[in-house]
Amino acid sequence: MLRYLIVLLDDTSTSFCHYTASNKEPNLISLDILRKAIRWAMTENLTIQFVYPSHELLDEWNETIETIDHVKIKPATAASTSDADVVVFEGLEAIDMPLSKRDVSIVIRTRMSDFLDKHDRLHKLLAQANRLNVVFTDVDSFADDDQKAYDEALASLSLVVKNEYVNNHPVQFNLLTDRIMLTEMNNCGAGDSTITLAPDGQFYVCPAFYYDADGYPVGNIEGRLDIPNKQLYRLQYAPICRRCDAYQCHRCIWLNRKTTLEVNTPSHEQCVVAHIERNASRRLLEAIRQEGEFMSGTEIEEIDYLDPFEIARP
């Protein structure tokens, strides 16, 4: 069921996920389309997430945005992030910037190799932030040889996270704590619970489908939303994912399409990365419990595979 509308306010709106918002010049959404988007969201009972560019918007746009309850996703390079609900940093270098407030959600987009080299830079942030999401921009090139290094990086960060929990700061860190908190799949939702409106007035399954040359629209704000084979975006129609318990996995619909040509089928790389995180979460849960009672009733089973494709073949 559709619950969220993502509105890209400009062609240069920040990416907050795996895709890169590339090769676009500034092109602000028209006021007319913006107003129609807000009206449509109200009639459909949707929560809007506005995605901002670095440059400031004109007053009339800002005033229009404030006519509806919403979430602001802003790049860390924006002129002001004080009112942002989510702030996006590009790379681990950029996070030295001071955070304006503690309750903002932080997204860090990074290459896997940078993360493996520089994950220590997250220590300070884990102590400060309430919510930290690390998103890899090159999951599709994750090699089986990277598994050990990724596992070790997460083990190192687990020590920091464990101390935060012991010291009464239950930081949410997507790579390590989401799996502990979740009791069912909580994935990307593109095409199912979430739809994107681009500055061209067309709907896309997610922003990546707007920016990618192979992307395609699924209706427009003037007409109607029309997602062909809509069922394929739902978990029950994903043969690998519906059996999986890496509940924190992004299950990125765009990466699925890009790597396997099907929106409902994840790549080997996406599955392995998610399972290394799942297993690290399991060890973190055990480690926190050694310090005291924690999340009683929650268990993460030990499994002997990293790619659920191995158990999903009919």
Binding site: P239, L261, E262, T265, S267, H268, F309, A312, P314
Partner: peptide, 26 residues
């Protein structure tokens, strides 16, 4: 066309995953 590889680079196994997990009901 759905091309799953070639004689130079080999088979891209990711592109086989949808076929190998297809079932009747889905």
């Amino acid at each position: 066309p759905i091309i799953i590889g070639n004689v130079y680079d080999g088979i891209d196994k990711n592109k086989l995953r949808p076929f190998l997990t297809l079932d009747r009901l889905t």
